[in-house]
Design a protein around this nucleic acid. Structure first.
Lengths: 125, 125
DNA sequence: CAGCATCCACTATGATACTG
DNA sequence: CAGTATCATAGTGGATGCTG
């Protein structure tokens, strides 16, 4: 992406976008950050994140598992036990995602100020 | 984001997520990458991206402008001329976004292989 | 040229109830 | 505990036609 245009030959832009979309969805980054400190059970994650619904946590985990970022280990006991953890690929992803998150966190004030200024200009003009 | 949990005190996670969501949306990164090489007019961008609709390009640019990543300069002529360019903040964003894009591009084969394996396991199991 | 307005299909998210 | 199934709703994205 540092050399604009160089990946269009192979349709790389659209393919890469499927990964960026997962990063941008509502819960994936939350889950990845939680798992960065160790594996978690389903309801552990749900409690920690708090505001996520069962359905969305389930869907998010399935998406991350499908992409190869998260592993799912089932212990067939009663009650059942399922542990989620980052794969090697998931840990690698943590690098650039963390950098983007850090940047966003460092600049969130500037972004929110820009939004406020824009909205004010709209309301007035 | 490298120190999990440290930004929850100020609700940073939710606020940061609004930035990540913009990165994850369908057209923002495309537009940012195009503008990284210089300013563009509306229809220039539309032609270059190709598959984007007028409505979505318009909405994407307005969103990026609102967040302070893109500037919009109007030349009141006939026909009208509008030039879009990255702001300083937009150029800074290019760093982490480019890194994530590079990572995604470098690992897209692994991700697609994981997807294929997952889908095959589903179809069979 | 650079858009906005309208209508429509599809998706994402959530609330609730149920299951092995 | 760890989900799936169902229903309801809000938002996204696209097609088309119109405007200054």
């Amino acid at each position: 992406m540092t050399i604009p245009g160089h990946q269009h030959e192979t349709g790389g832009c659209q393919r890469v976008n499927t990964v960026l979309s997962r990063i941008g969805d509502k819960w994936s980054v939350q889950v990845i950050m939680r798992l960065s400190t160790g594996s978690r059970r389903f309801n552990e994650l749900k409690r920690e994140i708090g505001s996520v619904s069962q359905k969305m946590l389930s869907a998010t985990l399935r998406g991350l598992e499908r992409d190869g970022f998260v592993s799912r280990r089932v212990t067939p006991s009663v009650p059942p036990r399922v542990d989620y953890a980052l794969t090697d690929l998931g840990h690698e992803l943590l690098g650039p995602v963390g950098a983007l998150g850090d940047w966003a966190f460092a600049n969130i004030d500037a972004v929110e100020a820009a939004r406020a200024a824009f909205d004010a200009a709209q309301a007035q003009g």
